[in-house]
Design a protein around this nucleic acid. Sequence first.
DNA 1: TTGCGTGCAAAGGTTTTGCATGGCA
DNA 2: TGCCATGCAAAACCTTTGCACGCAA
Lengths: 132, 132
Amino acid sequence: MGYKTKHSAEINEYVKATSGKHFTVSDVSEHFRSRGSNISAATLYRQLDKLTSDGVLAKYTVDSAGSACYEYIGADECCRENCYHFKCSSCGRLIHLECEELNSMLKHLEDEHGFRLDPIRTVFYGICKDCS
Amino acid sequence: MGYKTKHSAEINEYVKATSGKHFTVSDVSEHFRSRGSNISAATLYRQLDKLTSDGVLAKYTVDSAGSACYEYIGADECCRENCYHFKCSSCGRLIHLECEELNSMLKHLEDEHGFRLDPIRTVFYGICKDCS
DNA sequence: TTGCGTGCAAAGGTTTTGCATGGCA
DNA sequence: TGCCATGCAAAACCTTTGCACGCAA
């Protein structure tokens, strides 16, 4: 599954520490830059995409022409099954939400329409409570 | 609301003709190029974004680092209220779907969670029937 | 030694912007 | 005339890729 290097270890540590939050490549880049340890963008993309393939991270799009969002899901079964992402078009916040009804909806979609929704890649757009 | 020019008229005509389908900036560009009438990318972006602001088009993201998708919704009440977009991660197809249960789900989200989902901007990712 | 990881720079693609010109009202 | 639309080129971003070198196993 690849070698263990200094950088891959640091990146692993970082993504685990962000559990429950999402981040972009530039967030990670900033993080390491601010501690004097620079990791090239190419390496970050390669490592994060590898972690995504391995199922450790989820990757999804929040905005066109914006950057991709990653999120740690490696040890968080909740986030694998019941966690949905809502993006407020007004304030820009990304909201995590668990919802039983949405779970049933997924089942309906699969049973009746043959579509297996991937909650990890899907971002629900709309207006949040505070902005309404 | 802006002037009526030759290009804006042509673009309006094009997007109306695509009703029910989605398209990208390069689709539009290709379309006009193939008829000998070139419209610059800048103009296309400006016109399509204007139409989006005016509520004539919907704009949504299908993939990070991919191009934005637009869709005509100006006169299609169905697509405003009951039409959802599903993107198959396997074959890449974009599927339009109407679903009563999803309508109820939207209501639940708004009533219980205070989140007003925007079906026009939201793309549901997953695996379609044929690819399962 | 073998092969993956890394950095750098370059390239690729989409979208935005500045500026001068041209067209609508 | 005044203001918006357009085209062109350049710039801004995000992301990927080629290549040489370094490091893990």
